[in-house]
C-alpha cells in the first residue's frame, strides 16, 4: 500500500533540515495548518498529512475497528514516519492529535525528538474531581450536529475526489469543503476523540514537550491545560492570547513563533 497516498502526505520546506510534523485534529484536515506553514518551513522540513477518513485520504483504507481507537491513528503517524524514514521529528498535534502524538512517540521513540501539544485534552468528559468540560449528552449533541451537517460531502463525489488526489481542478472544490467527511466516518472519529480517556498515557511522555493552549477555549479549557502540564514532568506550558480552539487559524503567527521558540531552545 502507498502510505503517502493513503494519508495524502505533503512535504514542504528546506530539504535536509529538521522535521516538523503537523497533525490535524477532529473536524477538518491538514489545511488547518496552512497559515503556519510559511513561517515553519523557513528552516524546517514540514510534513503534513490527513488521517485516514479525513480530508483527501484514501477512504477505502478506512475501517471502523482500526479507527475506533486512538492507537489506530497513531499507527498512521508511525507508518508515515517509517515510510519517509523520519528521525528526530518535532510532532505538533492539534487537539486529539496531541494525544495521538503521545501514543506514537511511545510506540516509536526513535522517530520523535519532542512534542508540541496544541489545545490538548486527555479526557473531555467530566469524571469525579476531573473537569474535562463536557457530559456524555454533550457528545451526543455533537453527533447530532454531524448528522445534520454534511458540509458538501456527498457519497457520489467522494470516490472521484479521493481517487484523484493529483487531478488539477479538483483542488479548489476540496478547499471549499476541507471539513467535509463521510458522516459515518466522522461519527467514529468524534466518538473516539471525545469518549477516550487518555489520562494514563500522559505518563508515557519521555521527550521534551510544549503544551500550547489558548486563553479562551471551550474545548480545552485552561484547567485541562494545567492538568496536562502537571502530568508531564518537565513540560512547558504557554498560553496564547487567542480565543477558540484553533490558534493556528486565529493566531497563526504567534502559534508558529511559540513552536519555533520551543524547538530552537532544544538545540
Amino acid at each position: 500500500m502507498d502510505i503517502l497516498r493513503r494519508n495524502n502526505v505533503t512535504v514542504s520546506g528546506r530539504e535536509g533540515s529538521p522535521v516538523i510534523m503537523l497533525a490535524h485534529g477532529f473536524g477538518c484536515d491538514q489545511n488547518m495548518w496552512r497559515l503556519t506553514v510559511p513561517a515553519l518551513a523557513e528552516d524546517h522540513r514540514v510534513v503534513r498529512f490527513d488521517y485516514v477518513g479525513s480530508g483527501r485520504s484514501d477512504l477505502s483504507a478506512w475501517n471502523e475497528e482500526r479507527y475506533a481507537s486512538l492507537e489506530g491513528y497513531a499507527r498512521d503517524v508511525v507508518e508515515i514516519c517509517d515510510e519517509l524514514d523520519l528521525r528526530d521529528v518535532v510532532f505538533v498535534g492539534h487537539s486529539v492529535s496531541a494525544m495521538i502524538g503521545v501514543l506514537a512517540a511511545a510506540d516509536a521513540p526513535s522517530r520523535f525528538s519532542s512534542l508540541v501539544m496544541v489545545g490538548p485534552s486527555p479526557r473531555y468528559i467530566d469524571d469525579e474531581d476531573y473537569r474535562g468540560g463536557f457530559s456524555a449528552d454533550d457528545i451526543d449533541e455533537l453527533l447530532d450536529s454531524l448528522e445534520s451537517n454534511y458540509l458538501g460531502w456527498s457519497a457520489a463525489m467522494a470516490p472521484v475526489i479521493m481517487g484523484n488526489p493529483d487531478r488539477p481542478g479538483l483542488g479548489e472544490e476540496l478547499t471549499a469543503s476541507f471539513c467535509a467527511t463521510d458522516p459515518d466516518i466522522a461519527r467514529v472519529f468524534a466518538r473516539t476523540t471525545f469518549l477516550t480517556d487518555s489520562r494514563d498515557d500522559l505518563g508515557k511522555v519521555a521527550v521534551p514537550t510544549l503544551v500550547l493552549e489558548c486563553s479562551e477555549d471551550v474545548i480545552a479549557p485552561r484547567e485541562v491545560g494545567a492538568y496536562v502540564h502537571a502530568a508531564i514532568p518537565g513540560s512547558r506550558l504557554v498560553t496564547l492570547d487567542a480565543t477558540g480552539h484553533c490558534p493556528q487559524l486565529s493566531a497563526p503567527e504567534a502559534t508558529a513563533t511559540e513552536i519555533l521558540t520551543f524547538v530552537r531552545a532544544l538545540r
Binding site: 473536524g27 457530559s135 449533541e141 471549499a176 471539513c179 477555549d217 477558540g244 486565529s250
Partner: peptide, 20 residues
C-alpha cells in the same frame, strides 16, 4: 449554542469561516 453545537462550531464552523 448548545454545548454539542459549540463543539461543532469550534471543530468545523470556525475553521471553515476562517479559511473561506
Amino acid at each position: 449554542l448548545t454545548v454539542g453545537g459549540r463543539l461543532y462550531h469550534e471543530t468545523h464552523f470556525a475553521p471553515l469561516l476562517r479559511m473561506q
